[in-house]
């Protein structure tokens, strides 16, 4: 019985993990290229969640349509915040960029609070479900998972096959070396930041496809924390590492949920956040370069 429950939860965990992974790739990309830690990460996920919600409830558009819309909104926000704020901070001490991205996050949260309000919202997108022997999966979750994998794959292809993607890799590995090759490093910064934010806002769509409730201006905080844990798992500066870090994190989170549920008088859901911190602490103590980093 426990075996089936665990297998079911692990399946859910793998799927959620794929979405988590995709939700962290933007953070890793921005850190890897610009060396900026985006503390406002979760706020951009929240923007994606609201994009989905509003398109669905106001215009009756499916969350699948929200994916490209969120990507465009995210990239536009990314370019906007890059040229207004981040461009001044790439050479500045870390504290400056931490404060600035925190401020951007707060600005977004408060703007949404001001225009839409703080109550928890949700939507109901019913596209059927499939029953496996071990668990029942709504199709929306499967779409979210497939969407995450497709986007991760596209990013991988963009990185490895295109001229701009190659330039981004070069800047990540040696900024000065890239400059010597004639790469316009400032443009690569702007593009990476925009793509990073675009991915993050898009991941907000996929996350609501998985969890279509609890949408409110402050929902991002929990995801910021998880994204940091996942990014550290995956080696912080590596978007692919982040994706696999997400898969592992989803498995751990859901797997331990089953185990915590076995302990009487323990509230398993509350324990998952404790677990996030524990994992972060352990990795930083044992292998601060990340579990998946080759070196």
């Amino acid at each position: 019985m426990i075996g089936i429950q665990l297998a079911g939860n692990l399946t859910q965990g793998l799927i959620l993990g794929g979405v988590y992974g995709m939700a962290t790739m933007g953070l890793s990309l921005i850190f890897g290229v610009l060396g900026v830690v985006n503390v406002g990460h979760g706020a951009f996920i929240m923007i994606g969640a609201f994009t989905t919600l509003l398109l669905f409830t106001q215009l009756g558009l499916s969350p699948i349509i929200a994916i490209p819309v969120a990507l465009v909104i995210g990239m536009a926000l990314g370019f906007f915040f890059y040229y207004t704020v981040i461009i001044r901070l790439t050479e500045a001490p870390e504290l400056a960029s931490l404060l600035a991205t925190f401020a951007i996050g707060t600005l977004l949260e408060e703007s949404v609070k001001f225009t839409i309000g703080t109550e928890f919202r949700g939507y109901n997108w019913d596209v059927g479900k499939i029953s496996l022997h071990i668990t029942t999966l709504p199709m929306s979750k499967i779409y979210a998972f497939v969407g995450s994998i497709l986007i991760a794959l596209l990013l991988y292809l963009w990185f490895s096959k295109t001229r701009a993607g190659t330039a981004v890799r070069a800047v990540m590995q040696d900024r000065k070396g890239a400059g010597v090759c004639g790469v316009n490093v400032n443009w690569i910064y702007a593009l990476s930041f925009a793509i990073g934010i675009g991915l993050t806002v898009t991941s907000g769509v996929l996350l609501t496809m998985f969890i279509p409730v609890g949408i409110n201006p402050y929902m991002g905080g929990a995801y910021t924390l998880k994204a940091f844990v996942i990014a550290v798992l995956g080696g912080l500066a590596s978007p692919y590492g982040a994706f696999f870090g997400g898969l592992i994190f989803g498995l751990i989170e859901n797997g331990t949920y089953t185990l915590f549920a076995l302990v009487p008088s323990l509230e398993p859901f509350a324990m998952t956040r404790f677990l996030s911190f524990l994992i972060l602490l352990l990795i930083l103590l044992i292998k601060p370069t990340g579990l998946l980093r080759a070196k």
Partner: peptide, 14 residues
């Protein structure tokens, strides 16, 4: 105009 920088600045993972 080309520069061979001091300290090489190669792309180590390529």
């Amino acid at each position: 105009l080309a520069l061979v920088p001091e300290g090489k600045h190669l792309f180590p993972e390529m």
